[in-house]
Design a protein around this nucleic acid. Structure first.
Length: 145
DNA sequence: GCCAACGTTGGC
DNA sequence: GCCAACGTTGGC
């Protein structure tokens, strides 16, 4: 299993919005960046991701799960763009702010720090563990979900 | 609201 | 195929 980070402006689509979708989840559409699309193409059902609020909050607020592999966007006339479907798994007991991430030397290489503009990012196993620790979430409890 | 960083577009 | 111009993103 790989881990990822999904960015969203809470004004447009927030963590609460995803939670309200329940098990049906949400199509992660609107991505118009090849790097982000390519990351989504690598995702497998069951992969987990951080849900990050950009602009407002600037923090990792929850964990989501990929429930459908990359598929063409319904309303994309060009046929170039794809999206995965994601559903909420659990909220972060303690949201991890961008400030806190930047202050942690272990996370200096995170895409969130290095390339903050990429909207769908890969997260390494080490980064995943560390951010979960900071958020006071036991990553082992996420397994098998 | 500003602006730096980045990605894309289009003229040559 | 290069690169200047432009648009967008997102932190501050």
């Amino acid at each position: 299993m790989q881990t990822w980070l999904f960015k969203s402006e809470p004004d447009a689509f927030s963590w609460d919005d995803l939670v309200s979708r329940g098990k049906k989840g949400e199509a992660w559409d609107g991505v118009r960046n090849y790097q982000a699309r390519n990351n989504m193409r690598k995702m497998q059902v069951g992969d987990l991701g951080f849900f990050y609020h950009s602009n407002e909050g600037k923090d990792v607020v929850g964990i989501c799960r990929v429930i459908a592999k990359a598929h063409p966007e319904a309303n994309d006339a060009t046929g170039k763009w794809e999206c995965v479907d994601v559903a909420a798994v659990t909220a972060m007991p303690k949201p991890v702010t961008l400030d806190a991430v930047k202050l942690n030397p272990k996370l200096a290489g995170m895409m969130l720090v290095v390339n903050s503009r990429l909207s769908v990012q890969p997260v390494t196993a080490e980064e995943w563990k560390e951010v979960c620790r900071m958020g006071e979430l036991d990553p082992k409890k996420l397994k098998g979900s």
